[in-house]
Amino acid sequence: MTANARANILSRLRATTIQGQGPFIVPDAPIIAGLELSLEERIGRLQRMLETMHAEVRVVSAGGWLEELKAMLRARTLNGLLYGPAAPFGPALEGAWEEDLPPLVPYIEPVEQCRERLFNIDAGITSARGAIAETGALILWPSAAEPRLISLTPGLHIAVLDAGMIFNTFAEAIDQQHWLRHRMPANALLISGPSKTADIELTLTFGVHGPKELVVFILS
């Protein structure tokens, strides 16, 4: 049945162009000049946009972020911090960990073996591959090193971003990070804040099915 469906659909679509209507001539609209901000402005704009969406943003030095992370976690009661040991910051995180912090929980087994744990852990930390200043969004490419659910099931998602990877626009990120030359990841994401909804009377509330909080460390 489906083999026929394919042929039938395609031939219907093709038949029409042949019947004297010809392909539509579609002029490309002029390219819109994108933002062109300096690094500092990009950081500022990203921070502002993310904060509007209720994310918490901390601009820190590359050397000092771990201490700040630890201070932040000490101030909370969390049952654990999920992370990928092969993440770029994995070894540094492990090296810096201390007894009085929520335990580090490495994500090293297939989800089938640890589903329960993933759905019950309070916090997760991932790297961000880049960010978009214009609209305010992080770019995540989950992988074997940093699986998808780290940024989804915990109530608190912490993301670590290198300020040099903040692009003006989404289009610029695609070009400059050469998304087309790479093999696209199984799942790529833009994330602009904690999960939210406005489905009841358009009242905006944060923390629906995804993380309730998003904390972004921008390393400059």
């Binding site: 609209t135 305010g136 074997a144 199984a186």
Partner: peptide, 20 residues
């Protein structure tokens, strides 16, 4: 200006991956 999530799916879980 953008939604919270923009989810781009290009393939099922790859061999070395742990979820998806």
């Amino acid at each position: 200006p953008i939604t919270t999530y923009f989810n781009m799916i290009t393939s099922p879980r790859r061999l070395d991956e742990l979820d998806g």
